[in-house]
């Protein structure tokens, strides 16, 4: 970890301004991913802007019947929030499927969206990785890739987004709200928030330098059976091989997003028309353009079978 200067921000705009003013600055909230990466010098900010004093830690109803989740709401609190449990159980379920109790106590809503991939080559600074070191190559393409993306990858990167929360938020049509140093705000639909790697895998999201997440909003509740099923090698405290976030209505219609398969939560809205026809029909369309590696091709049947399980559970 390189030496850095440190300040505590007092307003979101000031935080954004501080980050813009200092090259190579980073916001820090929970720190559960950033400090991990800083110890390995995968991230090497020279300045940290501590945003924990900004408030932004409440979950409140919006005028259109939805919820606004403050950027600094901790994962534990969000999962336990009464409104979330009642109206967006998918989000609660996704949150408690992630990490550990200790980490969820610290990790924030915004930080969770920004967590970086768990590709073993991203995590090893001796290895080529276009995401960590643009232009150095992608070791995963010729290496161990069991955990990595089966769809949406590129010749430069086959990393996955490692989170669970964002997968549920994608299914729930969440919107990420930001502010920049000039005070300009923007609302970014979850569908657009995370990028595909393309030839710029170093950019995980569409955020600009200094742009600060203030909240995530959820539209009015959509009801339905909401099930998050995460498949991993051990029973807990592990990243997903595949996860399914599904909302299923009594008539069999619904929505589904997949985690662990791509650089972003993977949802294909057009495929959801097939929901009443079962998992195979949905998966065939969701993963039509899949390009798995030999050691992660199992994720395709796994995704389909996990969705089938979820659909079966929804009928119970």
């Amino acid at each position: 970890m390189r030496a850095f200067s440190y300040e505590r921000a007092t307003t979101p705009e000031a935080a954004a301004a501080a980050a813009v003013a200092t090259p190579n600055a980073k916001f820090i909230a929970g720190g559960t991913n950033l400090l991990d990466l800083m110890k390995l010098e995968i991230e090497a900010p020279t300045h940290l802007v501590d945003v924990n004093g900004l408030g932004l830690d409440t979950v409140e109803p919006t005028d259109d019947g939805g919820l606004r989740i403050g950027a600094l709401v901790r994962n534990t609190d969000l999962a336990a929030d009464a409104q979330v449990r009642r109206d967006y159980p998918l989000l609660s379920r996704a949150l408690v499927a992630g990490a550990s109790g200790q980490l969820r106590n610290k990790a924030t809503t915004a930080g969770n969206l920004l967590q970086r991939t768990r590709c073993p080559y991203f995590y090893d600074t001796n290895m080529p990785c276009n995401k960590r070191n643009p232009g150095s190559g992608c070791a995963a393409l010729t290496g161990v890739s069991r955990q990595l993306a089966v769809i949406g990858g590129s010749d430069a990167c086959i990393a996955t987004h490692p989170g669970d929360m964002a997968v549920a938020m994608r299914a729930l049509d969440a919107v990420v709200e930001t502010v920049d140093a000039e005070g300009a705000t923007r609302a970014i639909p979850m569908a657009e928030f995370h990028r595909l790697p393309g030839d710029e895998p170093e950019r995980d999201t569409v955020l600009n330098t200094g742009e600060f997440i203030t909240a995530v909003t959820l539209p009015a509740p959509v009801g339905g059976r909401q099930i998050y099923h995460k498949v991993r090698d051990r029973a807990s405290y592990a990243f997903a091989l595949v996860s399914v976030a599904a909302i299923i209505h009594p008539d069999g219609t619904g929505r589904v997003a997949f985690g662990g398969v791509a650089h972003k939560p993977w949802r294909v809205e057009e495929a959801e028309a097939e929901m009443p026809n079962g998992a195979r029909a949905v998966a065939a369309r969701v993963f039509a353009d899949a390009a798995p590696r030999p050691d992660n091709a199992f994720k395709l049947p796994l995704a389909e079978r996990t969705l089938a399980l979820v659909l079966a559970e929804a009928k119970e």
Binding site: R118, P120, Y121, Y123, D124, G143, V144, Q147, D233, R234, A235, S236, Y237, A238, F239
Partner: peptide, 16 residues
């Protein structure tokens, strides 16, 4: 060995 930490080399947790 590519999975050289305790997140990527999974050992049993309590729930297992």
């Amino acid at each position: 060995f590519a999975n050289h930490d305790l997140a990527s080399y999974e050992v049993p947790v309590h729930l297992d």
